[in-house]
Computed example of a mutant assay.
Amino acid sequence: MLREYLCQIGFTSNESKVYLELLQVGAQPASLLAKRLSMNRTSVWSLLKSLEQKGIVSSYSSKKILYFVANDPNFLIGYIDRKCRAFDYYREKLISVIPKFRGVMDDFVFQKPVVSFFDGLEGVKHIIHDFLNANCEKRGYISLNKGFWSDRDFSDSFRDALKRKTSKSFKIILPNFDEIKKIFNFNNKNVEVLCLDKVDFGKLFENEMAIYGDKVCILNFDKGVEYGIVIENPKVADMHKMIFDMAWNGIQ
């Protein structure tokens, strides 16, 4: 049991064996200790020097013979304290260089997109609320499905969310329908709306798309088959942000 405790705090199995033997028999030269343990003398010598570095074994010379003796078990507490301080130091150092490790990962490893599927109207609303409450730049295409936006409770909560003051830009491209335009009939300098005539819109945005942070969301509002797909990946999101900005600048 004692050997297991020592191994749990960082001792090797043989270090534990040597230390416990020294505790039991007292000061010993490496050669005699090796015989008692039926181990190679060179190996025992290396183990004793390792334990000495850990601060739990001491050595002294008598009649030109070097003896090793186990320190009081309280020295084990000091050993643990030193390890904790060292780990705390290296933990702080590691925190400071984590961005550099991430930089290596970003440069050489393609992160697979995380794709989530949300079924039903409540799932779609969950995605939209996440979109509206995200603290980042937002871009969105509003769908042609007027029925969804005629839901008074939802359209009111949607408009209230858009009215919140934020330092992040919010750009929306939507069809030129009166029902939908009423939702965005407010004064918020951070929310920019671009309306397109139906003839220009065509079937391009029959589904809604929301782009924010590292997420691209595709939403279908057809009654009875509502669903949402969320693709989470920085490179995919950056590509769609670029496409949106090109469309925004080109339409204007």
Rank of each mutant, 00 (worst) to 15 (best):
M1G: 13
E4Q: 12
C7L: 11
Q8P: 02
T12D: 04
S13L: 12
Y19C: 05
Y19I: 03
L22T: 03
Q24R: 14
G26F: 08
A27L: 08
L32A: 14
L33E: 06
W45S: 09
W45Q: 08
L47H: 11
E52F: 13
G55F: 10
I65Q: 14
L66H: 11
L66R: 15
F68L: 05
N74T: 05
L76G: 10
L76E: 12
I77E: 15
I80M: 15
K83M: 07
R85F: 08
Y89I: 04
Y90F: 14
K93E: 15
V97Y: 13
G103L: 06
M105E: 09
D107I: 04
F110S: 06
K112R: 11
F118T: 00
D119F: 12
I127N: 02
H129F: 13
N133A: 14
K138V: 05
G140L: 05
L144W: 10
D151R: 05
D153T: 04
F154C: 02
A161T: 00
K163D: 02
R164F: 06
S167I: 10
F170R: 02
I172W: 12
L174Q: 09
D178L: 14
E179G: 07
I180F: 12
K182M: 04
K182N: 07
N188D: 06
N190W: 00
V191P: 00
C195N: 03
K198V: 07
F201I: 01
K203C: 12
L204Q: 10
E206N: 15
Y212L: 05
L219T: 00
F221I: 00
V225K: 11
G228L: 04
P234K: 10
